[in-house]
Design a protein around this nucleic acid. Sequence first.
DNA 1: TGAATAGTGTCTTTGAGACACTATATG
DNA 2: CATATAGTGTCTCAAAGACACTATTCA
Lengths: 226, 226
Amino acid sequence: MVLDFIKQEIFLAVDNVVFSIYKWELLVLLVERIKNPSKWSWALPWWFVEDDMTLKQSAYSALERKTQLKHLYLEQLYTFSATDRDPRARVVSTIYMALVHRDNIKPKVSDEAPSVQFFPVKKLPKLAFDHNAVLEYALQRLQYKLEYTNLAQYFLKDSFSLRELQDVYEIVMNDTFDVRNFRKKIHSLHMIRETWELQSNVNHRPAKLYEYIDKEKKVFDVLWVS
Amino acid sequence: MVLDFIKQEIFLAVDNVVFSIYKWELLVLLVERIKNPSKWSWALPWWFVEDDMTLKQSAYSALERKTQLKHLYLEQLYTFSATDRDPRARVVSTIYMALVHRDNIKPKVSDEAPSVQFFPVKKLPKLAFDHNAVLEYALQRLQYKLEYTNLAQYFLKDSFSLRELQDVYEIVMNDTFDVRNFRKKIHSLHMIRETWELQSNVNHRPAKLYEYIDKEKKVFDVLWVS
DNA sequence: TGAATAGTGTCTTTGAGACACTATATG
DNA sequence: CATATAGTGTCTCAAAGACACTATTCA
C-alpha cells in the first residue's frame, strides 16, 4: 500500500432513508437492532461500505440485506461525520434517500434482522445513533425536491389519476392544495400526459389515468401550489 | 476495537473547492502536485481526514496546510466514491465548497507545496484525479445557491456598492442583468441595508455603500434577475 | 463642460392564488 | 335518483421583465 504513511481508524458506512406511501401516510423503513449499542431500538437500514463498491452500490446492497426490492430511486444526500455518532468506533456515514412504491419492497425476515418494517414518519420511536436527525434532514430534502422534480413518480404506479398524484404531494408536504390550481400547475410543467385508460371498478365517475413523459429527466420548473 | 469483524481498506479525504473573485473573474484555488500520481499537474487542495476531526474541521485544516486565511465560508457539497479516483488506493472524498474574499486568503509557500495559486475558472488546466468533474459540480451548486441565499457576501467587503454586488452575481452566473431590475429584486429581499458611507476617491458620482443585515441567515426567496 | 458611473419609474406580461359549479360513474 | 368523486374557468393581484433618462463627482 502506497499510502502506508496515513494512519486512519475510520469506518465508512451508508445509511438509507427509505420513504414510501401507504394509506395517506408517509412511511420510512426501520430495522430493529438486536445488538448493542441501542439493542432493541429501531434504526435506519445501514451497513459498512465494501472496498470494491461505490457508496451508491453500498447503499443498494445495504437495503438488499434487509429487503426484496425493485424499481427504487436512490440519491445521495449528505455525509454525517460527528466523532461520537457510534459509541464503538469512529463511523462516518453517507446518507442515501430512497423512494419506492409500497408494492416494490418487502421486508426480508431472517435471524439477523427479525424485524424490518415501515413506520409512519409522524409516529416515530426514538431511533438509534443520530438517526432521528438524519431522518429529519432527509424529510426536508424530500419535501424540497418534490417541488421542482418529478420524483413523485416513485410513489406511484406507471399510470395514475391526478387525484393520486395530488395525494402524494399533500402527504409528503403535509399540506392541502386547491384541486384546480394543482392541475393547472402540473399541466403547465408538461411532465405527464394522458393515457387512454380510465379507472375501473369504482362507484363514481372514473378518473382519467396519466403517465410521466420523460422519467429520466428529473428537474422541472419550481412547483409550488396552494 | 469492537468493530474488528469489519475489514475496510478505504481512505477518507476532503477536497476543497475554494472560490474567490478578482478583477471580474471567478477564481478557484489550486495546488501544484510535486509527487506522483499526476506529478506537476494542478489539483484541488485536499487531505486525509484525521481520526478526531469532523469532515468540516478536516476541510478547514486541509486549507490551513496551504494557505493563511480568515473569514471563510465552508459548506459540504457531495461525497465522491468511484473506486478508481486515486490510482494508489481506494480514496473516498467529501467535497467542501469555500467562498472567500481575495484579501482574506494568502498562499503559504513551503517546500511541501511550492505552488499554490488562484486560477480563473474559465482558464483551467487539466487537473489531477477527478478534480475537473468535482469543480464543475461545485460551480453549478454555487451558481444555484447564489440565487436563493446571501452567499454573495463572502466575495465582498463588509460594505459594498450595489454595482459591486451585481458584479458578483454577473461574474458567478456568467451573465448580465438589468441594473434597475437587479436593484428592485435585491431591495425586495430585505437582506441588505444602506450604511451612511459613500465611495471616496472615485472620479465620478460616488456610490452609496450597503451592508448585509443578517449575515447568519443564509436562505432567502429565490433571486432570479435578467 | 466632458467623462465616468450612480441611480431611478412605468408599462406589459406572466404566473399564483382564491373561488363554485357541472359531469359521470355505480348501486 | 342518491352518492361519490372527477373535472373545469375566471378574476385579482404580485412579481418578472423590458426599457431610457437624470444625477453627481472629478479633472
